[in-house]
Write a protein that binds this DNA or RNA. Structure first.
Length: 506
RNA sequence: GGCCCGUUCGUCUAGGGGUUAGGACGUUAGAUUUUCAUUCUAGAAACAGGGGUUCGAUUCCCCUACGGGCUACCA
């Protein structure tokens, strides 16, 4: 690696929500930048006005924020190389495209999309390249005067790169190693569109150069166009400053074939986007990991492990640990099928490892959404500690802890009523009187008294535990029943026993 | 079709010329938990196939198969 300051960029196109693969690209960029104390740049690639979606850029910003990833330079915080939105850089690109034409590395093409469509239908495997470019309407084979006349008349045109013939373009990918391409197989990609906007190919090269990007991470789907980019770096005379490339393996559908898409989420019942995305045109909501109840730490963790590991058996990593341990050499080459079950496991692990204090706000929010008001913060923290090991997703906290804040409204009556006896009623009435007399309301003390009382009444403890639980909780779940009683305090425990007794005996 | 990339349990992966091919998720069985979850123990489960190279290949090379990506005035 050179001694230049590391600079990487995440360059999304604002066309909708950010999916798993996108966030993982952000993550790997970020990890690499921070590992080498470099800069992480956010650049918005909004060169396609047809696909531009309102709100998508804000979504990307919000998403990075949720993940705890802060860009050093971006459209909002600015930076030395502003603007960071390609649409705002529009005038820059034409100059470079013209320069390529002057050097003979690019040319004007006047063919309309319709004409090209017709060609594609007419000629099998049609490519706008060395085989056909001299039959088409471009500055390569039109007389100079005609080209000038067309240009002068503002005839819609694009600028295409002129791919060299019979050449091999190769480079060393940080993940894949040596990769090479035959230039005859690559077509003359459009560099500048008829609307004056650059295509990705031109924009990425120009901006990476201007923004002094040293390492370029992107999805493997970009590998086939790498030769175009490589050539552009060379033609523009910037080869010495070209970033090192890393083409990340793709995240694939869990079942069948192909890369993971938004549709798969709906089909398979798990989120594909980082956060909820509402399409304003169709009103269609694409669910996100955040809203489903994932912790950002878990989300990042599981994404990092999709195609990377540190060489040990460790699977749980914090963002700081990832930065410390990250290495490109350990990124795998093959695509990874996404497994939602494992994703949930990561979240459960993170919930278990996160202290109540850090979970507090999120749990409070979830309870509130479900109509449970929490006023005692210390009590909430105790509840979180006692139930968090049985929560996989954040919303599980509602089901697992609502009864700590409100009395059960329904009882799993079928689990108690058939086996109910007057002796049991007698026992619980006795318990009601015994409880307030306890010196300590610690779980162990309650348990001791509970068992002693059962013995006095000649009842089996086992037959009383479940009814007691259902009295306090309403159902067959939750932490140890005496722990629950202890948290509930004697007064509330007694109220619940009495209330349940009515339901059980009526 | 063409070009490019890839291929270890169902899934994510470790490993690497001689290993009982390791871990994790999931799964199965058992223990603990007088509920559920957790936790613990044990089990089933993989080197795509064929040729080389080699004393020896899952590991290196080639071919095939399969998978994936690209093949737009989309990124």
């Amino acid at each position: 690696m050179s001694d230049k300051k590391v600079r990487v960029r995440f360059a999304p196109s604002p066309t909708g929500g950010l999916h798993l693969g996108g966030v993982r690209t952000v993550l790997f960029n970020y990890l690499f930048a921070k590992k080498y104390k470099g800069d992480f740049v956010l650049r918005i690639e909004d060169t396609d006005q047809n696909r531009y979606v309102e709100g998508a850029e804000q979504y990307i910003l919000d998403c990075l924020k949720w993940c705890g990833i802060t860009p050093d330079e971006s459209p909002v915080v600015g930076g030395q190389y502003a603007p960071y939105r390609q649409s705002e850089r529009k005038p820059i690109y034409r100059e470079y495209a013209e320069r390529l034409i002057a050097q003979g590395h690019a040319y004007y093409a006047f063919d309309t999309p319709e004409e090209l469509d017709a060609k594609r239908k007419e000629i099998p495997n049609f490519q706008y390249g060395h085989a056909h470019r001299y039959e088409l309407r471009n500055s390569l084979n039109l007389p100079l005067q005609e080209v000038e006349a067309l240009l002068h008349a503002n005839t819609p045109h694009v600028i295409r790169i002129k791919m060299p013939q019979d050449d091999t373009i190769s480079f060393n990918d940080m993940i894949r190693g040596y990769v090479s391409f035959d230039t005859n197989q690559v077509d003359d990609k459009v560099l500048l569109k008829a609307d004056g906007m650059p295509t990705y190919h031109l924009a990425v090269v120009v901006d990476d150069y201007l923004m002094k990007i040293t390492h370029a991470f992107r999805g493997e789907e970009w590998l086939p166009s790498a030769p175009v980019h490589l050539l552009l770096w060379e033609f523009l005379g910037w080869k010495a400053e070209m970033p090192e490339w890393a083409h990340l393996p793709l995240i694939l559908k869990p079942d069948g074939h192909g890369k993971l898409s938004k549709r798969d989420g709906a089909r398979l019942g798990f989120p594909v986007y980082a956060m909820n995305w509402l399409d304003k045109k169709t009103d269609e909501l694409t669910p996100g990991f955040r809203e489903l109840g994932f912790l950002p730490e878990a989300f990042l963790n599981l994404l990092a492990m999709l195609g990377w590991n540190d060489g040990t058996d460790q699977e749980i990593f914090s963002l700081d640990e990832l930065i410390e341990k990250f290495s490109i050499e350990r990124i795998s080459k093959a695509g990874a099928k996404f497994d939602f079950e494992k994703a949930k496991w990561y979240n459960a692990e993170w919930i278990k490892r996160t202290d109540a204090e850090s979970l507090k706000l999120k749990v409070w929010e979830i309870l509130k959404e479900n109509g449970v008001t929490v006023t005692d913060e210390a009590y909430l923290l105790k509840v979180i500690d006692i139930v968090k090991e049985r929560c996989v997703l954040l919303p599980d906290f509602y089901q697992q802890s609502a009864y700590f804040f409100q009395q059960p409204t329904e009882y799993d009556i079928n689990s108690v009523k058939p086996k109910w006896t007057d002796a049991k009623t007698d026992f619980f009435n006795a318990l009601v009187t015994a409880l307030p007399e306890l010196d300590s309301f610690e779980p162990a003390a309650i348990e001791t008294r509970f068992k002693a009382l059962a013995e006095e009444k000649g009842l089996k403890v086992g037959e009383l535990m479940l009814p007691f639980r259902i009295m306090l909780v309403g159902g067959k779940f939750g932490p140890h029943v005496f722990d629950i009683a202890a948290l509930l305090k004697p007064s509330e425990t007694i109220i619940r026993i009495e209330k349940a007794l009515e339901a059980f005996t009526s």
